[in-house]
């Protein structure tokens, strides 16, 4: 469990707080989206989870360990962090070495490294590229490689910063599969994003941030039916929910729909009614 207690954070000693009085509990196996517009403090918050940043005031505990007491390298074994545009960090000549880098840092023996790298490259459809340069891969493959090079050490918590940034529709679909896979493995997955459409597809618990504060913490569906809070945090409703509120405003539907399929059925039945 990750517990955040009265967290305040400032980059400069006398500067303004970029995180203000954050209190959170993130349980095991949860799927969470931390949302908010640019500068809301999302990335700053998640950097506290693996100790890259230490609280100015308050505490952050990862499995009851105070993040101030342990080095980043130790926390990172539990909390895997996948940064925005993670392919920027590639430096190896071979895909294999890129994935093995972290395992070597964490002191795995060669036999385990071979086994783990082979396994993860196969899962991520990258085995055939094992001896190629990471830089010849396509954008989507590079993103997958970057994710694989973190998941390879099997961290219990996985933080993904803006995973959908710069990814096309097919890659988003693959990303969804990867996230589902992680959740089914019992991992805690924390997504940092302002991509409402992506969040609407996975419906996680949403922690909404604005100006360094948590303004909403709860179900995604309930949040998306509340355009007021969304707009105050610089976000807009996903298309599905916009459609829903338009139809509801016209008195055409009651309640709402949860999936595109449900929406399609409702609309078809509405059309059917008119034809009668």
């Amino acid at each position: 469990m990750i517990v955040v207690e009265n967290l305040y954070f400032t980059y400069a000693p006398q500067g303004d707080y970029v995180l203000k009085n954050i209190n959170l509990e993130i349980g095991e196996g949860e799927l969470i989206a931390i949302m908010g517009d640019n500068g809301a403090g999302k990335t700053t918050l998640v950097k506290h989870f693996n100790g890259l940043l230490k609280p100015t005031l308050g505490r952050v505990y990862v499995d009851d360990v105070d993040t101030r007491d342990v080095p980043i390298s130790e926390l990172s074994r539990k909390v895997g962090m996948i940064f925005q545009y993670p392919e920027k960090m590639f430096f190896s000549e071979r895909v294999w070495d890129e994935v093995a880098f972290a395992l070597r840092n964490f002191g795995y023996d060669e036999a385990s490294i071979n086994r783990l790298v082979q396994k993860i490259l196969n899962i991520f459809w990258l085995w055939k590229y094992r001896d190629s340069s990471p830089f010849i891969l396509s954008g989507g493959e590079q993103r997958r490689l970057a994710i694989a090079s973190v998941l390879v050490w099997n961290p219990k918590y996985v933080v993904m910063d803006e995973p959908t940034a710069g990814q096309d529709a097919v890659q988003r679909e693959i990303l969804l599969q990867i996230i589902n896979m992680m959740v089914s493995q019992g991992k805690t997955v924390i997504l940092v994003t302002h991509d409402v459409e992506f969040v609407a597809e996975i419906r996680p618990r949403v922690i909404l941030m604005s100006n360094g504060e948590v303004v909403y913490d709860g179900e995604a569906t309930r949040l998306f039916r509340n355009p007021g809070i969304l707009e105050s945090a610089g976000l807009t409703q996903p298309i599905l929910f916009k459609l829903e509120s338009r139809l509801r405003d016209q008195g055409l539907i009651e309640g709402g729909f949860n999936t595109i399929d449900e929406a399609a059925k409702k609309i078809i039945s509405l059309l059917g009614d008119e034809r009668l």
């Binding site: 693996n50 080095p71 074994r77 895997g80 993670p86 960090m89 840092n105 090079s149």
Partner: peptide
């Protein structure tokens, strides 16, 4: 800024 980002990314991959 970029150096900082990369340092953080590699630290998160266990670089000491």
């Amino acid at each position: 800024e970029q150096v900082n980002e990369i340092v953080e990314a590699q630290l998160s991959r266990g670089l000491k």
